[in-house]
C-alpha cells in the first residue's frame, strides 16, 4: 500500500482538466463520454477495450476521476509503444481504491 501511484501529480492534474471538461455527472463519466476521447489516440479499438477494462476497476461502466486518470495514463503509455499490462499492477491502482 506504500507503492507510489504510477500516475504522477503532473499527469493527474492534466487528466483532471480533461475529466472536468467532459462534464461528469455525479463525478463520473459514462463510456459514451470517454470513448471519443480515447478514440482520439488513434490506438486500435482492442487496445482501448483492454485499457477500459483495466481502468474501470469496479466494472460499473463509468469512470470516476481516478479511474479516468488510469485510462489516460495507459493511453499515453501505449502511444509511447509500451505494452498494456495484462493484469492490474499494484502501482496502477489509485491509492483511493487499494
Amino acid at each position: 500500500t506504500n507503492i507510489p501511484w504510477d500516475v504522477t501529480l503532473s499527469e493527474k492534474s492534466k487528466y483532471d482538466k480533461v475529466f472536468d471538461s467532459l462534464q461528469p455527472v455525479n463525478n463520473m463519466l459514462s463510456g459514451d463520454k470517454v470513448k471519443p476521447v480515447l478514440m482520439n489516440s488513434q490506438l486500435p479499438v482492442d487496445i482501448l477495450g483492454r485499457i477500459w477494462d483495466m481502468s474501470d476497476i469496479d466494472k460499473d461502466g463509468y469512470l470516476d476521476r481516478d479511474e479516468f486518470a488510469v485510462a489516460m495514463h495507459l493511453v499515453y503509455q501505449a502511444r509511447e509503444g509500451q505494452d498494456i499490462p495484462s493484469i492490474m499492477r499494484p502501482g496502477l491502482v489509485p491509492p483511493s481504491k487499494r
Binding site: L38, D46, G49, W52
Partner: peptide, 13 residues
C-alpha cells in the same frame, strides 16, 4: 447510476 443496457460495461466491445 444506471448500468448500460447492453450488459457489457465496456464501450469498446
Amino acid at each position: 447510476q444506471v448500468p448500460p443496457p447492453s450488459g457489457s460495461t465496456n464501450p469498446f466491445l
